Amino acid sequence: MSATTIHFVRHGEVHNPDHLLYERLPGFHLSDRGRRMAEATGRYLAENPQTNTAVAVFSSPLERTRETAGIILDHLNEARAELVVADPNGRRLPPLKLATDDRLIEAGNEFRGRRIGHGSGALWRPENLKLIRNLYKPTWGESYRQIAARMSAFAHEKIDAYAGRQIIVVSHESPIWSFRHLLETGHPEHNMLLRHAALASVTSVTFDCDTHQVMSITYVDPAANVA
């Protein structure tokens, strides 16, 4: 039985001193801690024989995911060069390159640019809270069903394209969790406050190549202790 594993990585912490809901806004980069988080996850992926033979790395087009993916790439390519990581046939693996895919982007959100907290325009002001009527089915932007559909289309395309191999995908909390929730429960709707996809964490999904059925889902948080 041939299987394809997709390792979904959430980006590291973002530099956001004004506490804005940045969503898809440009100009939001990893913080210093976020880079350290990406380094920790990059080391984990490069040292783990279950992940260091990945044959492709994809990311959302946003800065924070591309920066996280770039750090991961550096670690994986260093492992390929120094440890001579080989494929199952013993052949040396070539350096990886980053590819972006719009289907991996953060969820659309009508509150983009608003502050999270107190002050003028803050998300939690009463006039805004009126719009947040249902945490399971958000009415303020892209639906969980839409998010999961584009993530699912990406995943099923790559299951066939990389049959029997592993790839690494750097995305965002909402897309990763919405897709996982769909796979585990049959529906993507969920309470956004109960997600389990920490910054720089890795959610690995293994699919049967013939049926595209899920064989296993695992989760690790390599950056949990990064200060």
Rank of each mutant, 00 (worst) to 15 (best):
R150T: 08
G113N: 07
A155M: 07
R125Y: 02
T53I: 05
P94V: 03
P88H: 09
P95Q: 10
L123F: 10
D32F: 01
G108E: 09
E142L: 10
T100N: 09
R36Y: 05
A153R: 15
S152G: 12
M37R: 08
R133C: 04
N52C: 11
R80Y: 09
L62A: 07
R80D: 01
L45E: 00
N48H: 12
R80Q: 08
P49H: 07
V84Y: 10
E157L: 07
R133M: 08
A46I: 11
Y136V: 00
L62Y: 07
Y144F: 15
V84C: 14
A46V: 11
G141N: 06
A46L: 05
S143D: 10
T65Y: 01
T53V: 09
P49L: 08
R80P: 03
G42C: 04
N134H: 10
K97W: 09
T51Y: 05
S143A: 13
L98S: 07
A155C: 14
N89F: 13
E63V: 10
N128G: 10
P94S: 14
W124N: 10
N128E: 13
R33S: 03
K137C: 12
P126S: 08
A54I: 00
D102V: 11
G119Y: 05
N128Q: 11
H118W: 07
L131Q: 14
T68C: 07
H29V: 02
G117C: 01
T53K: 12
L30F: 08
H29N: 15
L135G: 00
G70E: 13
F111I: 00
D101K: 03
P138T: 01
W140Y: 13
E78A: 13
L104C: 06
E67I: 04
S152N: 14
Q146T: 07
P95Y: 06
Y44C: 02
F58T: 01
G141D: 12
T139F: 08
Q50K: 12
P138R: 13
A148V: 09
L104Q: 02
T100P: 04
F28M: 07
R91F: 13
E67H: 02
A149C: 03
L73P: 01
W140D: 03
H156F: 14
V84G: 09
Q146E: 15
D160S: 14
L45R: 03
R80S: 05
R66F: 00
A79N: 06
D101G: 05
D160V: 06
K130T: 12
A38T: 01
P138H: 05
V85Q: 01
I116E: 11
P138C: 01
G141H: 03
I132M: 14
A46C: 10
R133Q: 15
I116V: 15
Q50C: 11
Q146F: 04
Y144P: 02
N52E: 07
G113M: 07
L135A: 11
A40Y: 02
M37L: 05
I72Y: 02
R35S: 08
L45H: 04
L45G: 00
D160H: 14
K137W: 11
F58E: 08
G121F: 06
R150D: 12
T68K: 15
Y144M: 05
N77E: 08
R33I: 14
L98E: 01
F28I: 00
F111E: 01
S120K: 15
